[in-house]
């Protein structure tokens, strides 16, 4: 079933991924938790979209919704659609979904050790992933596994394919995870905090590898992260999420140049910088609200220096999407820009 999207590009092709007004709720004994509450974003092939936010903002739940990996119940899709190359994934049967998972959409997770089977060699795991979706012989599948390990720049891939996950370092395991995820040449790769558990030098290597692989294979990447540094280094566009909603979306350059939402600005200011001198950091007062404690109004209002009566009463709509730089805030008029936040980062450029 392919319904042409109204936002199809010039060639008439629907976007790679088009999430519209997604609402993923969890029914718990303490009430309904609106983990994702009306999130929309789009992604084209060869594009990297960063999803930024703090724990509990719904960024991972959105991604798991795309792959339909959430147990239902307690999870429930309360609205919206997820169109992948024009097909609404929420309307597919579990069997159809299995044909997409790991084949056309793949995911890599934060902790590579727990996502790999400890009793199988890494070559076998990659080969099995291939044979699951493609009709090829075992020897060919093994060849593909070795080829994938070479692609992710693991030295001596023939020997490494015969090793077990525990024989490898953390960085190498994450490379294996990437090889596993890309073994069937998916069109979309969802990377959920892929470098958070890694050391900085390894993180830099992995991000570079992902960039290389994207250039070679042309997949779209959704990069979920809490680290604005990672976003700045490897994303084309960014969605900032807070408490289950999208609060800002822009190109990376725009977002760092002119962050509109007070949350985005506060987040940038509170990050310690390698360039800045010591001293106190800018704090965001309070803490991220628990999703079940959300009341009416803008979820950021209790922590926001610009909050007005209206912010506490109404939830702001997401506006300005057409300009490429949208924001969900009543007070984010350009006139109110305070350059305070920007100085440090402007100074960061050589």
């Amino acid at each position: 079933m392919t319904v042409p999207s109204p936002q199809a590009d010039q060639a008439g092709r629907p976007p790679l991924l088009d999430i519209r007004d997604l609402r993923t709720h969890f029914d718990t004994p303490d009430g309904t938790v609106r983990s994702v509450d009306g999130v929309s974003y789009r992604l084209e092939a060869r594009e990297t979209l960063g999803i930024v936010g703090e724990s509990g903002c719904g960024k991972s739940v959105t991604a798991l919704s795309v792959l339909r990996l959430l147990p239902t119940p307690p999870a429930r899709f309360a609205g919206g659609e997820i169109r992948f190359q024009g097909t609404d994934l929420l309307g597919l049967s579990e069997r159809e979904m299995r044909r997409i998972r790991g084949n056309r959409i793949s995911m890599i997770f934060q902790e590579p050790m727990t996502s790999l089977n400890p009793v199988l060699t890494v070559g076998r795991q990659i080969a099995e992933a291939v044979t699951l979706h493609q009709k090829i012989g075992r020897r060919q599948a093994w060849q593909r596994a070795v080829e994938m390990l070479r692609l992710v720049q693991i030295a001596d891939p023939e020997r490494r394919a015969g090793e077990y996950p525990h024989q490898m370092s953390g960085g190498m395991r994450q490379r294996v995870m990437i090889a596993l995820a890309l073994a069937c040449h998916p069109d979309l790769l969802i990377a959920d905090e892929p470098t958070t558990a890694l050391d900085v030098t390894i993180q830099a290597q992995i991000l570079e590898l992902l960039r290389d692989l994207q250039a070679k294979l042309g997949m779209g990447i959704v990069m979920i992260t809490h680290d604005l540094g990672v976003v700045a280094e490897c994303c084309d566009r960014v969605v900032v999420m807070y408490a289950g909603r999208k609060v800002e979306e822009a190109s990376v350059a725009d977002l760092f140049e002119r962050p509109l939402h007070p949350y985005t600005r506060a987040l940038m200011a509170s990050m310690p910088s390698l360039q800045g001198r010591g001293g106190r950091l800018a704090e965001i007062p309070g803490m991220v609200p628990a999703p079940q404690e959300l009341g009416t109004g803008c979820a950021f209002a209790p922590r926001c220096p610009l909050a007005t009566e209206r912010c506490r009463r109404e939830t702001p709509d997401f506006t300005g999407a057409a300009t490429g730089h949208g924001v969900a805030c009543f007070e984010a008029a350009p006139a109110r820009h305070q350059p305070v936040v920007l100085h440090r980062h402007a100074g960061a450029r050589p």
Binding site: V230, E233, M271, L274, Q275, H345
Partner: peptide
């Protein structure tokens, strides 16, 4: 190398 590996939250800075 450790310093150069750390990501910088400014696009194009590195």
């Amino acid at each position: 190398m450790l310093l150069s590996a750390a990501p910088i939250p400014a696009p194009g800075a590195r």
